[in-house]
């Protein structure tokens, strides 16, 4: 694992990917920049936010946006801008950790289920089926009300929610990987199952895992906001973008529209950005999903272009 040459390869893979993204996917690049901004805002929230997240300013209740409070204040005199910035941190943490948890769970279940197959796979898949029979949001609400509301709980519950459904994708990938000759070769030379899974299967799951991770993040952020909005997420006074839209914000929104406009706008922008980024990443990493004519490389791209030219020209012929 600590082989320096594999380390360098990984690096150039990422750099290549980013270079291709900037060159081929302008919208994805914009999404990437939005994602980066979210990360920076989340990490450096303490330095960026002008006030503390729960710092109340007496005498500034429900004041409209001004030079002192750029985005206005809420009914307790708290600065909306600061709360939106701290909200970015919460969204970022939950999005990344829950998505990582979900992806990990998916990889574990999917790899075992796909590689071993047989009865284990059958039983596992029936459980995943049953799990996916429940509408997501309702299942999450019920789970949150059972285990209680809070940040840790929501991360666990969201990981479970997407971990099971994502295992299908990994399982499919593992099942097709398993058919490769090099796996047979591994078995033939007497590799242990663990070694085959870790050295031969897992590295090849890189692309679907990255795709799974990035596509889950926006879903999780938006669902966390929805749960907090409904009162099953992170309890106040912690500033979350969903929570900022509920409770007292609904009560005062006609007098102070800025209380509900900004958190929602921040949430939408971030989710939009990550979705764009994830989409572009998927197109670059998984040529089969691209919907194009070819599979890999420049040759296929030239073919696709030729095809496009032909179909564009054909109406006139």
């Amino acid at each position: 694992m600590a082989d320096p040459s594999s380390e360098r390869k990984e690096h150039s893979f990422l750099v290549n990917l980013l270079a291709r993204m900037v060159k081929e996917k302008p919208l994805g690049t914009v999404g990437g920049i939005i994602t980066l901004l979210l990360l920076i805002t989340g990490i450096f929230a303490d330095f960026i936010a002008p006030y503390g997240m729960n710092e109340a300013h007496t005498g500034f209740f429900l004041t409209p946006p001004s030079e002192i409070h750029w985005l206005g204040t809420d009914n307790l005199g708290r600065d909306i801008l600061s709360r939106v910035i701290y909200g970015a941190r919460i969204s970022m943490i939950i999005g990344l950790t829950a998505s990582a948890g979900a992806t990990l769970l998916s990889v574990i279940i999917g790899t075992l289920s796909g590689y071993y197959g047989g009865k284990f796979d059958l039983i596992m898949q029936r459980f995943v089926d049953a799990w996916m029979c429940f509408p997501g949001l309702i299942l999450l609400m019920v789970l949150m009300s059972v285990i209680g509301i809070g940040a840790t709980q929501i991360i666990i519950v969201l990981s479970l929610r997407w971990g099971f459904s994502g295992s299908r994708i990994i399982r499919g990938a593992v099942m097709s990987l398993k058919e490769n000759v090099y796996i047979q070769a591994g078995v033939a030379i007497g590799c242990s199952t663990n070694r085959i899974l870790i050295r031969h299967i897992l590295p090849n799951l890189m692309a679907p895992t990255i795709i799974l991770f990035t596509t889950r993040v926006p879903d999780i952020i938006i669902t966390e906001a929805a749960l907090s909005f409904l009162g099953f997420g992170i309890p106040p006074p912690t500033p979350t973008w969903g929570g900022m839209l509920s409770g007292s914000a609904r009560q005062y929104m006609l007098r102070a529209p800025w209380m509900v406009i900004w958190p929602g706008l921040a949430l939408s922008t971030v989710v939009y950005g990550i979705n764009m980024f994830g989409d572009a990443l998927r197109d670059l990493l998984d040529p089969k999903l691209r919907g194009g004519a070819g599979r890999y490389g420049i040759k296929a791209k030239a073919y696709a272009k030729k095809l496009a030219r032909l179909s564009a020209a054909s109406p006139n012929n």
Partner: peptide, 8 residues
């Protein structure tokens, strides 16, 4: 359309 939350 996918990204803007319904509650907003």
């Amino acid at each position: 359309l996918i990204s803007i939350p319904a509650f907003w």
